[in-house]
């Protein structure tokens, strides 16, 4: 039996989902970087992670620079991170969502965009891809997911700069179950785009899964605009010192906020903490649990489908498995 990264156990009582539990088993990869010379740790960071290697690499470079009192030019970092995030969004929108909703996979379109994004190495290349993406986006299916949330969901994580996070007491315990002002919060495209009228209208209607899909599309458009006009991406990543020899980097990713905290002593990494978006959204009392409980589901299959839709909308960066148990 497969033991995926996140196990989502749903308690179903005939008509309704009455409980949800998240079990996360993930190796603490940041520990591998501790004790190494700073340059080696920075070179290794992007190789440890399969999905957001650019974002992880950018965060490591920014954190190392901040820890050592240096400044980094972020323009080209921003461009690479934005292209990676677009690719991740398109993976969900073209490969993962259509089969869940009984639609045909957009595999050929995904392959087309992925190849173009990966081969765009200059500002000029990026602008060409961005132009074409913006023209193509309106043709993307909007999926019309109608599921509604019943209970008050987790708060949306507000935008905060690296200096604010540097003063927030980031530790390895925080990284396992992060909270803001003591409460779990949702990070990702919805948190970034909740003020857009189309997204806000879906939220007001309780259609939070649909709101996340709309926010994801809006995020693709924003990022493509940012490739054309780099100043738009100014808030996408930054860094700040977090004490003597300690640097904190903040990088937005497709899935949400990524934080790296690096403590440097005598040119070596003394401590390294990575706070990934999945830990916010799949917090034991976070958005997944808070939103699923209370939903009506006439059958076990429906309960499993609702859990699967919500999990994909919240987009864990590891594999997940849904189990429905009688409650």
């Amino acid at each position: 039996m497969d033991q995926g990264g996140v196990l989502l156990t749903v308690g179903w009582a005939g008509e309704q989902i009455v409980s949800a539990r998240v079990d996360c088993r993930r190796p603490q990869a940041a520990k591998l970087l501790e004790g190494r010379p700073v340059a080696e740790a920075v070179a290794l960071a992007p190789k440890l992670f399969s999905l957001c290697g650019c974002a992880q690499g950018a965060a490591a470079r920014l954190a190392a620079a901040a820890a050592q009192g240096e400044r980094l030019a972020v323009d080209s970092l921003c461009r690479e991170v934005a292209q990676e995030a677009i690719g991740e969004h398109l993976w969900r929108l073209l490969l993962d969502w259509p089969p869940l909703l009984g639609l045909a996979s957009g595999k050929d379109e995904f392959l087309h965009w992925r190849k173009r994004l990966l081969s765009a190495k200059t500002q000029q290349d990026s602008e060409a891809v961005a132009h074409d993406l913006i023209r193509w986006l309106p043709s993307l299916d909007d999926f019309s997911v109608s599921e509604r949330a019943v209970l008050a969901p987790a708060q949306l994580l507000p935008w905060r700069d690296a200096a604010a996070w540097a003063a927030s007491g980031i530790t390895s315990a925080f990284a396992v179950a992060p909270v803001l002002a003591g409460s779990p919060a949702e990070t990702g495209a919805l948190a970034r785009r909740s003020a857009l009228p189309a997204v806000a209208a879906l939220l007001a209607d309780g259609r939070r899964v649909a709101a996340r899909l709309a926010a994801r599309r809006a995020d693709v458009e924003f990022l493509a605009q940012g490739l054309l006009e780099p100043s738009l991406l100014a808030g996408w990543l930054d860094s700040a010192p977090a004490g003597e020899g300690v640097g904190l980097a903040r990088v937005e990713t497709a899935r949400g906020l990524l934080l790296h905290l690096m403590q440097v002593k005598d040119g070596r990494v003394e401590a390294y903490v990575i706070v990934a978006p999945t830990e916010w959204n799949f917090h034991p009392q976070g958005a997944f649990v808070g939103e699923l409980v209370g939903k009506n589901a006439a059958t076990r299959e429906r309960a499993a489908a609702l859990a699967g839709h919500l999990a994909l909308a919240l987009d864990p960066c590891v594999n997940y498995e849904v189990r429905v148990e009688d409650a």
Binding site: L48, F49, C317
Partner: peptide, 8 residues
């Protein structure tokens, strides 16, 4: 943070 495990 899906680990990038090389597979042969």
């Amino acid at each position: 943070m899906c680990l990038a495990l090389p597979c042969k």
